[in-house]
Structures are given as C-alpha cells and as structure tokens.
Amino acid sequence: MKKFITEFKEFVAQGNVMDMAIGVIIGAAFKAIIDSLVKDILNPLIALFTGDDLSMLSIKIAGAQLTYGNFISAVINFFIIVLILFIMIKAVAKAKNITAKSEEEASEPTEKECPYCKRMIPIGATRCGYCTTKLKGFQGQE
C-alpha cells in the first residue's frame, strides 16, 4: 500500500497532470462564460425576432411537453466553444510555426570560410572581400 501511495504522489507531481488539472479548471470557467453569453445575451436577442426565449421553446406530443429550447442553447454553447478552441489552436500552431522558423533561420550559417585565405566571409559572397578571389560554385562562374 505504501508503494502505491508513493507512485500516486509521483504521478500527481508530474507536470502533465498539473497542466491537465489547470486546463480543466480554466475550461470549466470558460464554459460558465459561454453559458452566460448564450443565456443572457444571445437568447434575448433571439427572443426579439422569435418572440420567445429559447428556453421557452417546447412542443406537446401525446400529452408530453418536450422542451427543446434548452437543447438548442446547449448546441449553440457547443459550437461557440468549438469555434473558439479552433481559433486558439490555429493561433498556437501559427506561433509554434513562427518560432520554429526563427530557430531554423538562426541555426543556418550566415558566414563561410574563404577556401583561399581562410577568413570568414558572408555565405552568399561570390568574391572574397579580403583576398578578392572569385569563388567557384556560383551562377555565372566557371
């Protein structure tokens, strides 16, 4: 039992578990904001056009009252959350791509060694600035 508790403590202390816990807490707070947006702002706006709040929409079938307005509100909540998550994921991917490109550019050499005088010259140079030798291997040169 002591080994189990020790392993559990190690598992909980891992960064991934803590990141996930923080994500769940932020997600719950975000859901509350979206619920309020739909309930307090979108539903009244829809009521201006339909005459009824979404939560009031219902239909009677065989004596049973089916309230489908709350379901529509939940679907709207879902699509708003999915849209915002999609935008956030795209933004994070773009930021990672920009970071990867800048790291890639930083790792590319900007200078090369002149094969004749052994001094460092710009990577795109066609003639050494120190010994003035034409460098082979570039367009327009033999």
Rank of each mutant, 00 (worst) to 15 (best):
I61Q: 06
I61A: 13
E104I: 06
I89E: 02
L66E: 10
A28Q: 10
E103Y: 04
D35E: 11
G137Y: 06
M20N: 03
Q139A: 10
G51Q: 10
E104P: 01
K3G: 02
S107D: 00
A95V: 02
I123M: 14
T50K: 07
A100L: 07
A13I: 02
I98K: 02
A74G: 04
S55K: 13
I25Y: 07
K118L: 04
K90Y: 13
M18C: 09
L42F: 13
K118Q: 01
I98Y: 00
Q65A: 09
M20V: 03
K136T: 02
I98F: 00
V12Y: 14
T110M: 01
L135V: 00
M88F: 05
T132L: 01
K96P: 01
I89Q: 08
F30Y: 07
F4R: 15
V24L: 11
K2L: 12
N77H: 03
E108W: 06
K112C: 03
Y130C: 12
I89M: 06
R127S: 08
V24C: 03
V12M: 11
P122G: 02
N77V: 13
T50R: 13
I59R: 14
M20D: 04
K31M: 11
K118W: 04
I61Y: 14
L83A: 13
T110H: 09
M56K: 07
K60P: 14
V75W: 01
F79L: 04
G27S: 00
M18L: 14
F30C: 01
G27N: 02
F30W: 09
Q141P: 00
V92C: 04
G51P: 14
K101G: 05
F8T: 03
G137L: 05
I41H: 08
N77S: 07
Q139I: 03
I72V: 15
C128K: 05
I81C: 06
F78P: 04
I87C: 09
I81V: 13
N16S: 11
I59N: 08
F78D: 09
I123S: 07
P44D: 04
V92K: 05
T132S: 06
F30E: 00
F138I: 02
A74Q: 12
Q65T: 09
T126H: 06
A21W: 10
A62L: 08
Q65G: 12
G51Y: 13
S36T: 12
K9M: 10
G27F: 00
A62D: 15
G15D: 02
P109C: 02
C114Y: 05
I33S: 01
K60E: 15
L135T: 03
L57T: 07
T126F: 02
S36K: 03
A74C: 11
F30S: 00
D53L: 15
L57G: 08
G15L: 03
P44M: 11
I123K: 08
K90P: 13
K136C: 01
N43G: 13
F49W: 07
R127F: 06
F71W: 05
G15C: 02
G51K: 10
A28D: 09
A13D: 14
K60S: 09
I34T: 03
V82L: 15
G129C: 04
F78I: 08
M56Y: 09
P115K: 02
I76W: 10
I46G: 06
K90Q: 15
K60L: 13
F8I: 06
Q141R: 00
V92L: 08
F4E: 13
G15R: 08
E105R: 08
I5N: 15
L57Q: 11
I87D: 03
K2I: 13
